[in-house]
Write a protein that binds this DNA or RNA. Structure first.
Lengths: 268, 268
DNA sequence: CAACGTTTCCCATCATGTGGGATGACCTCC
DNA sequence: GGAGGTCATCCCACATGATGGGAAACGTTG
């Protein structure tokens, strides 16, 4: 049944179908208002109810889901939040919070820090004047400033831009052609920053810069976001320079994985 | 490693062995300095190298792990951080951050917010004067103030205290007897707060209060933590009242799951 | 009351994951 | 520089464990 077996390259499960399904099940909660019934899950994943149910139960047993007492609906469990926080710590992301807050406050923008997550930019830390940050959201690569930065300074081994999902248009300014995107990335690399001027939604202007690792690849991307009224053409350079300064600070704070250590404080 | 094998509430693994193993594999990174080789994982899980390797590859494909280019070691991947942030949002936890910061600053303590995660308290949000919070850490239930609160106002359906792992002693003050623990929980319920006075480590004193849901069960636990010099006997009541005030505020902010909605802002 | 849409359990089938072993690359310590 | 160790990675025959159909039990709605 389902998905062809071989095709080793990118799309096919290497050898664990049950696991892949379970993880896809978790990802279902990404696009969703929090709670799902077992049969909703089954439908959404095109699986038999039995299987979806069994997978969900297994995930509950491991704490990756939890089930509401009355409605019997599932939601993301404690283990997810726990491992998420742990992951942020291991990446040193918690050290970025005060920096982002300062950047957001001093520029009057919303500041976001994102990493590459497959074919998306995943916003992990947000500092904001009005706390409306996009924490935990995943954004397209081709239509956001964060994404362009992550593409322009992509790590080797990351998905190439030819393998990206189709470049969907969100506004009439969205870049939808591969050649066009490639040219834009060249421009971004040369300028040292990326701009999103109404390409993901009208009335939003974002500037993003890379947080580079020792090899010169993007460890993360840092963006300041507001409206064209705030980020005007003549003040753009200033916003970019502020972002660059913050990014340089983050390059020190976000040490490469090998140099990190586990912070085991006594808590109670 | 990982305590006893089948620690789910019912008994035997419900019906998905590969999935359970994969999730246990993720949990391996909890107790660990960030990066693990495939064979380390195999040893730690008492599995064949083949299986551990295949599971790890599957997890990488789904973004739950990532593999270092050179060392070939595994670490937690973007999906984990992403879903973690998402989970925090769906629980409304991001709204707790400013409250905790204010509490920590105004009391000069470290403030932590934790939820029940099986047989542990999982610290999800931390506000701190010196940013040394225990974000993402999992703490025992019997030897911490947070844990006592989560036990005292436990939700029905949660693991009973008889089913907890053995009550390990961390100091000579740690409660290690079930009867003793039960009596302590009665005291906690009556007083409305729990205390940890050197029971998890010497020189640490913590007071915790519950964040209750509509049914009167603990949605989360809130703690202020410092040294006995700061949280003195005669100032304890004041700390507790400040924590209670913060907890009441959080009870409004942390809405029950059914009333939450997905915040879909435009980000770029 | 009947007709749904659920969750949950059981079970025969066979696809699926399993671990042993082989290979080659990379160390470090003689 | 060779030897012994560790390591990641791949292959394959086997049987274990995951699969989906079906049915029972439940709650809700018309």
């Amino acid at each position: 049944m389902t998905t062809d077996a071989r095709a080793n390259g990118a799309g096919a499960p290497p050898g664990a179908q049950a696991v892949t399904r379970a993880l896809r099940l978790l990802h279902c909660f990404r696009d969703n208002p929090g709670e799902l019934t077992a049969s909703q899950l089954a439908r959404r994943m095109e699986l038999s109810v039995s299987t979806a149910h069994r997978l969900a139960r297994t995930l509950v047993a491991a704490g990756f889901l939890e089930q509401d007492e009355h409605s019997a609906r599932y939601r993301l469990g404690p283990s997810v939040a726990e491992l998420g926080q742990l992951s942020l710590h291991q990446r040193g992301m918690h050290r970025a919070v005060p920096e982002l807050d300062a950047l957001a406050r001093s520029t009057g923008t919303t500041a976001d820090l994102a990493i590459r997550g497959g074919s998306h930019a995943v916003i992990l830390v947000g500092g904001s004047v009005n706390a409306a940050s996009g924490l935990g959201l995943r954004r397209p690569l081709h239509s956001t400033a964060l994404g362009k930065v992550l593409l322009a300074w992509a790590r080797p081994g990351e998905q190439e831009i030819d393998d990206l999902p189709p470049l969907r248009a969100h506004t009439d300014r969205t870049i939808t052609g591969l050649a066009e995107l490639r040219a834009e990335l060249d421009r971004v690399r040369e300028a040292g920053y990326a701009l999103n001027d109404g390409e993901s939604a009208y009335g939003v202007r974002t500037a993003a810069v890379p947080v580079l690792d020792a090899a010169g690849h993007a460890h993360a991307a840092l963006a300041v976001r507001s409206t064209p009224d705030v980020i005007t053409d003549d003040r753009l350079a200033w916003f970019v320079s502020r972002a660059h300064a913050c990014a340089r600070a983050l390059e020190v704070l976000l040490l490469p994985p090998s140099q990190r250590h586990h912070a085991t404080g006594v808590v109670g």
